[in-house]
Amino acid sequence: MIARERIGTIERLVLSRPERRNALTPAMLDDLATHLENAADAHAVLLLGEGKAFCAGFDLDLCVGEGGDDNLRALLAGLSRCIVAMRALPCPVVLGVQGAAIAGGCALLGGGDIVIASPDAKLGYPVTRLGISPAVSAPFLRAIPDGQGRRLMLDPGLIDGRRAHETGLVHELSNEPAAHAMELTERLTAKPPHALAATKRWLNELAPADAQRGLDTSLSLVGNAESHERLASALKKT
């Protein structure tokens, strides 16, 4: 469910489960993380979502009933691994975001270096009402001003691409974000890799992110009664 293609020196990765708005499964995150970890020789990485939505977050159907807690833990760990892998790559990572980038889908943005989104994209972390903590992405939200980060993590409301652009979560708006992201990625491959790598490494050092701390906080809430109850009742409604 991850389509991988090497186009010249560009590693192009696409979340490909459009019938479920690219809802993430543990296996998808495992594949995505592995592809990212193996892309160190690419000149630039492009991450897209197939269909109308970039990514609707975790597949919550997997998070209830027997094995639900284990799946939720695997999803959180896999998500964290993907974000860390994007940051650790020496080359720039560009994301093209159309439609929804919600919860785990929005968290993926935290690993990207350049995010291009459609003005009407919907972004945010509406997960506290499911008894889940979005803390896993909090260390990476330091990329935007603290006030905006707090609001986004604690308020389950969504923001649109325009607002996300104003806050710095999205860096450029486009009605064709995937095509635009590909175009930019191609332009990046004209720049010398050693300069991109040195600059990215220094930027990582200037804004360090304690990924483990965020993941541990999210994991600490898995399996409690509040989240069991809320997840079950949310899924019943839909």
Partner: peptide, 18 residues
């Protein structure tokens, strides 16, 4: 880079410098 990160934030600075 540290000056730009302080002025416009780490995320937007990443976008511009890379």
């Amino acid at each position: 880079a540290p000056l730009l990160v302080r002025k416009i934030g780490a995320g937007p600075a990443r976008n511009i410098l890379l």
